[in-house]
Design a protein around this nucleic acid. Structure first.
Lengths: 343, 343
DNA sequence: GTGAGCGATTAAACCGGTTTAAACACTCAC
DNA sequence: GTGAGTGTTTAAACCGGTTTAATCGCTCAC
């Protein structure tokens, strides 16, 4: 067998037609007799021919790939349960279509813009996912000026030229608060994520409004950074409060688990002395001691929906692509939250 | 300003030379007068021209991209501290060279081979990283037959056609065992990873031989799967042993943290009743309660070295690319290991 | 019998680079 | 003055597809 892979010309010769005819047959374009199409496809099959991505890329000016730029410190990225599952969902859409995923991990503030710019200018991708959406996110204007299609994960507050795929974090957060209120808690604090992230403020607002719904005020709100160390520091400050909260709602599991460790180290028993809830349902949440009450979304479905939407936008005829709303996150109750024994 | 990006023909016209001359100038090939080269580069600069990746890909038959296939359950992949940092290291090498990273996440046993095949046949990448190397790894033959260059992360026991980039896990494991022995432990157990992985057996063997060095036998060896749930089950079995071990060495942090939770749930105090050590130094290791004694490698450097080596192989003239040996992992002592109070 | 009309097919241009072989200009030796 | 040799430059082929415009063969109407 020859080592060289067959080209469209080989198929054409074999089927006794022109290159153009093969191209037409492959792409199912009308204007060819059915018998000819069959003959061409058979020839292609016998030769094991698959059209060259590179040649197609050049002639149709498409990359057949999508891009994901993760702007995050590698240390923080690890133990983030979102991206692996999200990427899995994306791939489940891309693979059957023969598309690829180009990934970039850049440190915050350092080369983020350059990352997108490179992806666009090198023509590496046909569109990108805009994850970790920020308020007044500069990337929206950047991508607009680069002419690179995009899909935002969650919805920016200002009208955006891009379709949004949304997984509402609020119902989950509200459920956590209601759960704690039902358990009798009245002094409930919140450790929030960085408030420049849309999903972080969404969780914070949901926390506040759910409390208000119950006629309560936040015991305190600490703005942290989603990291373990940040969670610990915030926790220490909360525990040092004159009127110590009886429950803490963290904006993610990592801060919650770390915060739980800090509380335990300070001699508090969980959940007897302090109830703790997280957000994400990361793998460890179930298995730390005590198991962490948290909120579980479906990042895999998120990835699927985002990929499908982005492809719609790319393939589209210019008509607007509708936003997608995913089913909200669910409360997962474990041992880290319990009845308030005495207030 | 025109929306169209300039092509090599535009630059040629502007500099008053032929397309070929521009190509020569760009690639620094000899045979052009210096003054001409300068003129061409100036023209390219003024036009803001950057050669099209797609066109180059087609004519030189290269993708200017590397591939990483992660064969892992997304649930297990999350909270794995290795890959984000590894990818960060890879990118730090690729970005300046204008290369991209194509990522695939596939579930174990499901489409792994297809993943590599697709990457190769679509000409998406010029080479791939072979991570989570297994014994008699079928991917080595697969890639050989696909003609796709590769670098193995760690060294297969059989001679391989690919260069290996190695981070020896043994010194770290040995250090853990020595540390425990010095603390007075004599009944030390091990929770291992799946023994088809090279790095898993390396840790197990190091565990056994380090104990032997101290004149000891393993209290028990549980083969687990690197997951939290697996770590818990193994831990329960170990704790139910007639001669319960006083220390457990886990093959990764995730199993260690989950195992620690299980032990605590069973009423054991750590480290008073049981010492626990992990492997990886994941973000949470420092912050769980008590802080986890573990072993820290440098996945970022691993990624850098792997990318550099793979590029050497791809760019190379066919001469052998030497294996790379990275500095071994270091022991990080925290609160989860302590003196044996009474034996 | 001729031309219009139509479906099927193809030749050739094109995408934007790289690379080969040939042409060119110039100097130098004999 | 001719030929060889050297250093520059270019025209054209090539990579492997897609796409446009033209051509071909055929039927049918008049």
């Amino acid at each position: 067998m020859s080592k060289e892979r067959p080209t469209i010309a080989d198929v054409a010769t074999r089927a006794g037609v022109s290159k153009g005819a093969v191209s037409f047959a492959l792409n199912g374009r009308p204007g060819l007799a059915q018998t000819t199409v069959d003959r061409i496809l058979a020839a292609a099959d016998e030769l094991g021919w698959r059209p060259s991505n590179r040649a197609r890329s050049l002639s149709v000016s498409k990359a057949f790939a999508l891009g994901l730029v993760i702007t995050r410190d590698p240390g923080v990225l690890s133990s983030d349960p979102f991206f692996p599952a999200f990427i899995g969902g994306v791939e489940s859409v891309l693979a059957p279509r023969g598309q690829a995923l180009v990934l970039q991990v850049v440190a915050p503030g350092e080369g983020e813009e350059a990352g997108y710019r490179r992806l666009a200018q090198d023509g590496r991708v046909d569109g990108v996912f805009l994850s970790d959406l920020r308020h007044n996110d500069p990337r929206i204007d950047l991508l607009t000026s680069l002419g690179l299609p995009a899909v935002t994960l969650n919805r920016p507050e200002v009208p955006s030229p891009f379709p949004a795929v949304c997984l509402d974090d609020r119902p989950g957060t509200i459920a956590v608060v209601q759960h704690l209120v039902e358990l009798g808690h009245r002094r409930i604090a919140h450790v929030a994520g960085p408030q420049d992230f849309v999903h972080a403020t969404a969780r914070t607002e949901a926390f506040v409004s759910a409390l208000a719904e119950a006629g309560l005020q936040p015991a305190a709100i600490e703005t942290s950074d989603f990291t373990a160390i940040g969670g610990i520091e915030s926790t220490k400050r909360l525990l040092a409060l004159p009127d110590r909260p009886t429950a803490i709602v963290y904006a993610n599991d990592r801060m919650a688990i770390a915060g739980m460790g800090a509380a335990q180290q300070a001699g508090l028993r969980i959940p007897d002395d302090l109830s703790v809830a997280g957000f994400d349902d990361s793998e460890l949440a179930e298995f730390v001691h005590p198991g962490l009450t948290t909120v579980r979304a479906d990042p895999h479905a998120f990835g699927e929906a985002a990929a499908r939407t982005l492809n719609q936008l790319i393939d589209g005829d210019g008509s607007a692509v509708p936003d997608v709303e995913l089913p909200p996150a669910r409360l997962i109750i474990r041992r880290s939250t319990a009845n308030l024994e005495d207030s």
